[in-house]
């Protein structure tokens, strides 16, 4: 019993200011009686109570998670966005060709892509992919802008560090051509074309320095895709 019967809406041609226009005629709100209005609202309230009681008796509806305890078994929604990552294929090659579209798409200049001319192929290739986590708003614009799908937002969210310089770091494990180019090279040249890069080397605030008591995690091991920077000493 709704206030307006939506099946009664009909289309009509009406002359408005000398022009005939189609008009949707919605029936007027029904004038209900005193009692039927009370019963109607009571019905709505009871429906609401039924819904909340359903929540009460079904523990599966609880969305709260006990975070530090369930750290090992945390499940993330598919679209959960945390730290920016480069995508690596199964051989450990990134897909980034260094086109800098992400840098242009970034609304607050949190990305800096540095390219270099490859000593092996002689073409432009990625040297360092610098990401400023401290100013990033995790808006996903870079991921959407990337033509080669080489970026993704990961699920690593425990980002507290003791020095804010640790929040600015390289994303790429190696300086070198992307997977597409690598495929065309032979085994020996591939190894020569890849020059390892760590998180805090190059033109980042830390500039390769090491902080006392804090061992930055190195991102150059291909078997460690979930690299958390700056938290080398955590448990």
């Amino acid at each position: 019993m709704s206030l307006v019967d939506f099946t009664d809406i009909r289309m009509e041609q009406r002359a408005v200011a000398g022009v005939t226009v189609p008009v949707a005629v919605v029936p007027r709100i029904k004038n209900q009686g005193y009692l039927s209005r009370i019963l109607h609202s009571l019905k709505g309230l009871l429906e609401g109570m039924r819904l909340t009681f359903g929540y009460l008796v079904h523990p599966s509806r609880i969305v709260t998670r006990q975070y530090p305890e369930n750290r090992e078994t945390l499940k993330f929604p598919e679209r959960y966005r945390a730290n920016l990552k480069l995508v690596y294929d199964e051989k450990g090659y990134h897909l980034c060709g260094g086109c800098k579209l992400c840098e242009k798409a970034c609304p607050n200049a949190s990305i800096r892509v540095l390219n270099r001319k490859s000593p092996i192929t002689g073409k432009i290739e990625l040297d360092r992919y610098i990401w400023r986590m401290d100013s990033c708003t995790f808006c996903n614009a870079c991921v959407l802008a990337c033509p080669s799908s080489s970026l993704e937002m990961g699920h690593e969210f425990e980002n507290a560090v003791y020095d804010r310089r640790l929040l600015i770091y390289n994303l790429n494990r190696y300086a070198g051509p992307q997977a597409e180019v690598m495929e065309k090279l032979d085994e020996e040249t591939r190894k020569q074309a890849m020059e390892p890069r760590d998180a805090y080397g190059g033109p980042v605030p830390l500039a390769g320095e090491e902080l006392p008591n804090i061992v930055p995690v190195r991102v150059d091991s291909p078997g460690n895709p979930a690299s958390r920077p700056g938290q080398g000493s955590d448990a």
Partner: peptide, 10 residues
């Protein structure tokens, strides 16, 4: 507690 459960919390 009850408020939590009504709102899908704990």
């Amino acid at each position: 507690k009850i408020a939590g459960r009504f709102q899908c919390r704990v």
